[in-house]
Amino acid sequence: MNQTSRLRVENLNVFYGQNHVLKNISLSLPDNRITVIIGPSGCGKTTLLRSLNRLLDEQEGVRVEGRVFLDGQDIYQPGVDITLVRKRMGLLSQKPQVLPMSIYDNVAFGPRLLGLRDRRHLDDLVEKYLRLAGLWEEVKGRLQEPASRLSIGQQQRLCLARGLAVEPEVILGDEPTSALDPQSSRNVETQLLNLKENYTIVLVTHILRQARRLADYVAFLYFGELIEFGPASEVLISPRDSRTRAYITGEIS
């Protein structure tokens, strides 16, 4: 099957000062699939993810070389507007980061930035995306409460809803379940599986079993190099590279 990819990485190199963290990565992330990035700690998974929506730019002393294409446009070109790029990619971080405001305002944050003021329209959006994240039934009676009162698992789903509300095409997740209990993790995983029909999903995880459950495609990073990339069935079951095999069997971690 021939996969289309709206998100492509070409010859990406990232340096923290002298430290060469990502080495010449080229990767096409298939549309409407879940691509899982695995690799030992410190190999550059987070860095790769953050280079995709240019969050790396926020740090000082980071140098990025190479190109990242979104729908054929290189997002690292000068003149590209970062806020629009970021709006097109939702981000789920390791720990849920709810904004210091109510549940409702968290979801409405993005649409409001884009200039949406109409209350009824906002109400509809909030409901729609809370449903999409599987949170609506739990919070519909307490939308005006501070979001920080939710449980951690609920907070992560709220972050998902909030990210979806800006209508991104891509969802980026950096170990989004690592702070959650097993039940909440399952819950988030289910939502992600439901969402892949309409979104391109890129996920970093440390948990191989989670990778097996979710991945359509797997990328294995090792010391900043992309060792292997391919369909999950191939990479996770019969890897070509010995380092991938060693990682999957737990010899290196």
Partner: peptide
């Protein structure tokens, strides 16, 4: 203020100033 929180707001497409103002 945690960096991750600011990044969360940035990745919703907020400008830096909007992050400052609302978060």
């Amino acid at each position: 203020v945690p960096l991750a929180l600011k990044e969360a707001a940035l990745s919703l497409g907020a400008t830096r100033f909007e992050v400052i103002r609302y978060v």
